[in-house]
Design a protein around this nucleic acid. Structure first.
Length: 109
DNA sequence: TTAATGACCTATC
DNA sequence: CGATAGGCCATTA
């Protein structure tokens, strides 16, 4: 970790929020942004996960976009890996490779 | 310090 | 329903 400010950096806040996503659930980038303090950080969330320091502790594969689709630029093995990880937790994909957010979207803490 | 970047989101057609 | 354009903002070079 580099020198972060006296308070938590935005990235740290984002990582902490992502860690809270429960097993078998997913969250959107916008949702993570909102729970991390600012609804306009959706894009920052994407960048934060792109430089994910420790994937073992941060379940970044549980984060999908607004349409319930997995991102193309998943940095750890590709989108197929992300999909498998989610399917292992019981998350189903429809014929368009999308997730039903009404069912699987995390409802908060 | 300025400019560029990006795993997004919303409104509009 | 799908596609496009513009906006957003922390972080980095």
């Amino acid at each position: 970790m580099k020198g972060m400010t006296l308070l938590e950096s935005v990235f740290e806040k984002i990582y902490n929020t992502v860690k809270k996503i429960p097993y078998g659930k997913v969250a959107t980038y916008g949702q993570i942004a909102l729970l991390s303090g600012n609804p306009r950080w959706a894009r920052v969330v994407g960048y934060a996960l792109h430089v994910n320091p420790n994937p073992n502790e941060i379940p970044c594969y549980r984060v999908v976009n607004r349409n319930g689709e997995i991102s193309k630029s998943f940095a750890f093995g590709g989108e197929d890996i992300q999909r498998k990880l989610l399917e292992m937790e019981g998350v189903k994909f429809d014929e368009n490779n999308r997730i039903d957010l009404k069912k699987y979207c995390w409802r908060g803490e």
